[in-house]
């Protein structure tokens, strides 16, 4: 079974359903505490796949994802060099962006246009891209819920788009998911792991496992 590291920072709250999604597609998810990475007890590259789940790492204090990004900063280069596929969901996406996983100075996740948290169903049209997580899903509309406060993708340079919102956008933005240049990493604000067993969402997780 493919080993998936689901990283836990204090304040993360979606780790269980995320691990359930990986289990549902036959993977072996393991919850890894960031303190164990910092102490050297666990090496971040000792996995087949990596996932930063959703939540409110460090209470979203200062700015969404920034404290968690600072905590994990020293391991990012090793992670990118190992070319380990990764999925970064909601707060995990915010952490990844602040940690430079999707590039530096090209992308920010800003407050929703409404100015408030938005929890509602959302539709995601899969665009043509090289992202391994959405291979074969291009042209389809996937349904899974949004739940975030600062999820509007704002670009400051080139960004590889993977999905766009169809119908009502929960944050006022158009882009729903992005990938890195070689298509191994998926950053997504909404929650393909919800509800547990969501067939649309599981196709994304299944693609990740297939790729490794």
């Amino acid at each position: 079974m493919k080993k998936v590291f689901v990283i836990y920072w204090p304040g993360i709250n979606c780790e269980e359903e995320t691990m359930a999604a990986f289990r549902a597609v036959g993977a072996d998810p393991q919850l890894v505490f960031v303190r164990d990475l910092i102490s050297g007890k666990i090496k971040i590259t000792d996995c087949d796949l990596i996932c930063f789940p959703g939540g409110f790492s460090y209470g979203d204090h200062i700015d969404t994802g920034i404290v968690a990004a600072v905590m994990i900063q020293e391991f990012i280069q090793a992670l990118l060099e190992a070319k380990i596929p990764g999925i970064f969901i909601c707060n995990g996406f915010q952490i990844a962006v602040r940690a430079g996983i999707f590039g530096n100075n090209n992308l920010a996740l800003v407050q929703n246009d409404s100015g408030v948290f938005c929890s509602r169903p959302a539709k995601h049209f899969v665009e043509k891209s090289n992202c391994l997580w959405t291979a074969g899903l291009e042209g389809r509309t996937l349904k899974f819920p949004a739940a975030h406060h600062a999820g509007k993708v704002t670009t400051f340079g080139h960004v590889n788009r993977v999905m766009r919102y169809e119908g009502l956008s929960p944050n006022g933005g158009e882009i729903a998911a992005v990938t890195n240049p070689n298509g191994t990493l998926l950053g997504i604000m909404d929650h393909p792991e919800r509800p547990i067993g969501n067939k649309d969402g599981l196709e994304i997780f299944r693609n990740g496992i297939k790729a490794v």
Binding site: C14, F117, R120, A147, R194, P195
Partner: peptide, 22 residues
């Protein structure tokens, strides 16, 4: 109501809102 996360844990089957416009 939509400011409250209703789908976390992935266990919600109904509520707090429903309908084509939720």
């Amino acid at each position: 109501t939509t400011q409250y996360d209703s789908t976390v844990q992935g266990i919600t089957k109904q509520g707090p809102l429903y309908g084509k416009n939720y």
